Computed example of a mutant assay.
Amino acid sequence: MATPIKILIVEDEMIIAANISLQLSSLGYDVTGIIPRGEEALTNIKQNQPDILLMDISLKGKLDGIETVQIMQNDYDIPVIYLTANADDVNFDRAKATNPYAFISKPFKKLDLQRAIELTINQIHCRKDSESSATMTNNSPFILSDCIFVRHLDKMVKVVIKDILYIEAERNYCRIYSKDKEYLLVMTLKDMDEKLPQKHFIRVHRSFIVNLSQIDEVANSHIVIAKKAIPVSKILKEELLNRLQTI
């Protein structure tokens, strides 16, 4: 079952806000809050980041809706739909500079709201698809929960995580050793370590990351995987032993 889209309403006219909330709930969306002030909205976003921000431009308080969005965008990339009863050129140009996904002029019908949100969700999905494609076309591995896709001979090929034995650094490259193949990636071992799922892998040496499930032996200064002796640094050995005890 798909998780409902989370929407935060920032609107200081509480009757309008409550009406919007009822409409969104009836359409199957998850309203994470109704907030009247920009300052409170920024605090709420830190605690529970929504998928879409429905923002009234003319908020009372220190921050109006556009200023609130400008501050929010320093830390978050949340699609914004503006609500406005005052669509003058100055406010429109200020709002446009924050790249909103839609504008809704008050008073509005339920269908206006529904369509603006559906169009926003469609744009979110399109953007995610294009980001995935971009990731697939560069040399970085595309990492999923049970496999990674790596570039090999001008193609992205699937490598099952449980089949990876270890990864060795070669200057600014990484060489992945799996059960039946090797893959050379243009990526540092540090970057690879940050991207790989931590429950499967551990860095045991400045030049090696290993798959915990593939370790055959643990000696004083090295481990053995598929008959290959891999050095283990003193600093990292304690963490390795702790991890082995928990799996």
Rank of each mutant, 00 (worst) to 15 (best):
K237E: 07
C174E: 07
V210S: 08
S105P: 01
G33K: 06
H200G: 03
L83Q: 04
M136A: 09
P4W: 02
K179G: 07
P36F: 06
D12M: 05
F149C: 02
L236V: 03
L83I: 04
E168P: 03
E118A: 09
T135P: 00
F149Y: 12
N172C: 09
I225E: 15
Y177S: 09
R171Y: 02
S140C: 08
D89G: 01
K234P: 03
K234T: 09
K195N: 06
N139G: 14
I247E: 13
K162E: 15
C147S: 10
N86T: 02
G38M: 02
M136T: 01
D154M: 10
R151G: 02
L236F: 06
R203H: 11
I35M: 07
V31K: 12
E11P: 00
C126R: 14
A226N: 13
V150A: 00
E118W: 03
S145T: 09
V31M: 08
I52S: 13
V218G: 04
V69D: 01
D154F: 07
F103W: 11
N122V: 04
Y82F: 14
E239H: 08
Y183V: 01
V204R: 00
E238F: 04
I71D: 03
K110I: 12
F108I: 03
P231D: 05
V90S: 07
C174R: 08
A17L: 10
K60T: 13
V218F: 11
A41C: 10
P79I: 00
A226Q: 12
I81Y: 07
K158V: 01
S133F: 08
L42W: 01
H125S: 15
D88Y: 05
I66T: 02
F208H: 15
D88W: 07
R171F: 06
D146G: 10
R94K: 14
H200Q: 11
V232I: 15
L53W: 03
G61H: 05
D93C: 04
L8H: 00
K46P: 00
N74M: 05
T120S: 13
K237Y: 10
I20V: 11
S130N: 13
I164S: 03
V10L: 01
E217L: 06
F149M: 07
F92S: 00
A102H: 12
L236Q: 07
C126N: 14
S145W: 04
K60P: 03
S145H: 13
L165T: 01
K158P: 02
T120N: 06
T98M: 06
P4K: 10
H222C: 11
K195Q: 15
K46G: 02
Y29F: 14
L144R: 15
D56L: 12
